[in-house]
Design a protein around this nucleic acid. Structure first.
Length: 307
DNA sequence: AATCTCATTAGGCGGGGATT
DNA sequence: AATCCCCGCCTAATGAGATT
């Protein structure tokens, strides 16, 4: 189990874990978030931060794929990331606490996947920290907000109406918009985007809620993990289910699509299969029992060298 | 038919920003 | 500083559908 691995290699105290979680919440949208988180967590190296983050992502993947029961986070007494899992336990809900942007993005993803009305599904699969009733209540205000044309209203979390909107519409840290849209021009002209959409529709690519949120943030620029490459689009940071028939053909098709840049453009698009790219620190996760094997695959657009 | 489960809706309440 | 008003969360009531 990944949590045990973390505890063996690097013990995290309650204070360190809390500092990590707080820093992750603050800096998740930053291109250099790992550096900033490392700075905010005394005594932890950059690599330890990245490892801790990846273990967290991996665990969420396992939980979302149903391989492990939902952990019962004991808010006041948890001493480290070495949390014990009790069978059949539920997630402690964030009663009375304001919705975070992260939760709202998960809500929007759940809304896109399950549709309006399936609050239980959204709660179970996307916004783990909220009950179906809380999700429904949040949705009520969300739709009310959408239908409210009052120009004098204050800014609200409900103003975020798409998962990646904040990142996509407001490139940060001096990043130019053309760097985000890639060598093929705008997103609408990007054949890979349609191809990946189809992959989602057929179930080949999964959209694992909060994991995708973390990956989405990386669209702002190169990360400490991958300083040379930009994620192609937000959704491409998601897991690829290698047990799905035709996954290798999919990867090959991606390569076929993107190795030929559009005319008059520069830069190279390519897929990175982490089965063969150990440089990516996100490692495959293997669980027994069902025989299902999943591994993360990230697809990146690599900028051409500046001339 | 009775009961149970769940989604929806309306309204109350507290917090906090905006205004005076 | 006081007040107003908006925002966001929660709870209770209600209704619809499923189950016994």
């Amino acid at each position: 189990m990944s949590l045990n691995r973390t505890c063996n290699s690097s013990f995290w105290t309650k204070e360190e874990d809390k500092a990590f979680e707080n820093a992750l919440a603050v800096f998740s949208g930053h291109s250099d978030k790992f550096l900033k988180i490392a700075a905010a967590v005394p005594g932890k190296s950059l690599q330890e931060i990245i490892d801790h983050y990846n273990v967290l992502v991996e665990d969420v993947n396992d939980i979302e794929s149903g391989k492990v029961p939902l952990p019962k986070y004991e808010r006041m007494q948890s001493s480290s990331s070495c949390r014990s899992r009790s069978s059949g336990a539920g997630v402690e809900r964030r009663k009375g606490l304001p919705w975070t942007a992260e939760e709202h993005r998960s809500f929007l993803q759940g809304l896109a996947k399950h549709g309006k009305g399936d609050w239980r599904g959204i709660s179970r699969n996307f916004v783990f920290s909220r009950t179906p009733t809380q999700v429904a209540s949040h949705a009520q205000k969300y739709y009310s907000r959408l239908n409210d044309n009052n120009a004098k209203r204050r800014k609200s979390i409900h103003d975020v109406t798409s998962v990646g909107a904040a990142n996509i519409t407001e490139p940060s840290q001096g990043q130019k918009s053309d760097e985000l849209t890639g060598p093929c021009g705008g997103q609408s002209q990007w054949p890979i985007a349609d191809y990946v959409t189809e992959a989602f529709d057929t179930g080949m690519l999964s959209l694992p809620g909060s994991v995708t949120n973390c990956m989405t943030d990386a669209i702002e620029g190169p990360s400490a993990v991958n300083p040379e490459k930009f994620p192609l689009v937000a959704a491409l940071g998601s897991e690829l289910n290698s047990s799905f028939p035709g996954v290798d053909e999919f990867l090959q098709s991606v390569e076929d699509l993107i190795i030929v840049p559009a005319e008059g453009t520069s830069g190279v698009c390519h897929g990175v299969d982490t089965r063969t790219s150990p440089s990516l620190s996100v490692q495959p996760s293997v669980t027994g029992g069902t025989g299902m094997y999943t591994h993360p695959v990230s697809l990146y657009w690599q900028r051409a060298p500046l001339e």
